[in-house]
Write a protein that binds this DNA or RNA. Structure first.
Length: 385
RNA sequence: GUGAAUGUAGUUUAGUGGCAGAACGUCCGGUUGUGGUCCGGAUAGCCCGAGUUCGAUUCUCGGCUUUCACCCCA
């Protein structure tokens, strides 16, 4: 029997899994601090609904397709946003929800890009510029807590469009032109210029490479200014990047990306779009690239209790510690040498011995595994560990 | 989806057309009131299928995995 994982899918155990949980916790905490409430949605939806955002898009090719016994045409969700159409019904606006979970794409894999991946989304249905600033701020907070230095880039799709119109780029070519401009990060100017020639749009290069001041003459630049102003009040800086597009997706206003300062990787993106006809904004974190980049470590088990023939008392003590919210691993039937070895390999901070000696003294021997120091503590002091 | 490279114990890897070796890990013991060191022992592997061959882990072809590039990227 083949027990290999399927292409693009993998297991995470031990420290890897702990690290991922830790990152999710940090993200969840910030989402909640900014007033987002959780939601859960089905992983499987009607295929029609999943692809509804881009009905004629090639992205359809990336959807995992399924069929149930009732021959329904189904698909695994490949993002969260389209489900907002359903969630936001009958919600008092602004409706702010977050969701952390798996999405699936049947697409080529590479480092940091698997076919099952965790996305962490926070969206505001019924949003204003203030919400765009808040999304960016909570993003900034998250990367600070992850010890990952980042840069925040913003642009506005309306501004981009305004420029294309004023430069008389034919409407049928605009999407393709935007796509080419978006590659300015990856390709050389020459390559982008060559690609733009097809659309008679090389002149755009000069415009998009002007200093920021030159953009002030455009009407929609004022949306960038407004966002910058609010961000300043929140105490952080953003950087205007006029050719940032974020694909051809449904964005209709501000778009942004958060990039690692150390490596050339996009860690987070988002922008404003419509849910039905309600202006909305959202931010999405890809767990996989963040996991690869962040050096943060997951939480370890805090305490290990070793029973030396005193199982009842050990169980009592373990439960009392757990009531205090301290994680406890209890070992009853291992030899002490083995138990110490176990604590050591799991990186457990403290070991508590429960034996005859301790019961007689009414004090527990507590050992710090890092320093090797031991001390006798009464139960009430042990609980403060 | 296209093209290239890749695949040997759980992990990192050595090697060969004729018995596949190591390190780390794991398990057992030295050590039933003390871990990280040390010593002894054990465990487990040639991605899958077909072909060539007396014999294939090795060569050929196909599939799959992983990596890189292209395409695309919520």
């Amino acid at each position: 029997m083949n027990i290999q994982t399927v292409k693009g899918f993998r297991d995470f155990v031990g420290k890897e899994a702990q690290k991922r949980v830790k990152i999710k916790e940090i993200i969840k905490e910030q989402f909640e601090l900014y007033g987002f409430e959780p939601a859960e949605t089905p992983t499987i939806e009607f295929k029609e609904f999943v692809q509804s955002d881009n009905p004629n898009d090639e992205a359809v090719r990336d959807i995992f397709k399924l069929e149930d016994r009732g021959k329904r045409k189904l698909a695994l969700r490949y993002e969260f946003t389209f489900q907002l159409k359903r969630l936001a019904k009958n919600q008092k606006l602004p409706y702010k929800r977050y969701q952390i979970g798996y999405n699936f794409r049947d697409e080529p894999i590479r480092k940091g890009r698997t076919r099952q991946f965790i996305q962490c989304d926070a969206d505001v249905v019924g949003s204003s510029t203030k919400d765009e600033a808040e999304c960016l701020k909570l993003g900034k907070n998250i990367f600070e807590r992850l010890n990952t230095p980042v840069k925040i880039y913003v642009n506005n799709r309306r501004l981009m469009n305004e420029i294309l119109v004023s430069e008389k780029i034919e409407e049928k070519n605009r999407n393709q032109v935007i796509r080419e401009l978006d590659k300015l990060d990856k390709l050389s100017k020459k390559e982008v210029a060559d690609n733009l020639k097809k659309f008679n749009a090389e002149k755009l290069l000069k415009i998009f490479e002007q200093s920021e001041k030159e953009f002030e003459k455009y009407n929609f630049y004022k949306e960038i200014m407004e966002l910058k102003k609010i961000c300043k009040t929140y105490g952080f800086k953003i950087e205007f990047k006029p050719f940032l597009a974020r694909g051809l997706s449904y964005y209709n206003g501000i778009v942004f990306e958060i990039w690692s300062k150390e490596l050339d990787v996009s860690l987070c993106g988002g922008g404003s779009y419509l849910v039905g006809d309600i202006q909305s904004t959202g931010i999405t974190f890809g767990l996989e690239p963040i996991y690869l980049l962040s050096k943060i470590e997951g939480d370890r088990i805090k305490v290990q209790i070793i029973s030396i023939g005193q199982d009842d008392e050990s169980i009592q003590l373990a439960e009392n510690l757990r009531k205090k919210g301290i994680s406890v691993n209890l070992l009853l039937d291992k030899s002490i040498g083995k138990a110490m070895d176990y604590a050591n390999s799991k990186g457990i901070e403290k070991v508590i011995f429960v034996g005859k000696e301790e019961i007689a003294k009414k004090k527990f021997r507590v050992k710090d595994m890092k320093t090797g120091k031991e001390e006798f503590l009464s139960e009430s002091n042990v609980l403060k560990v």
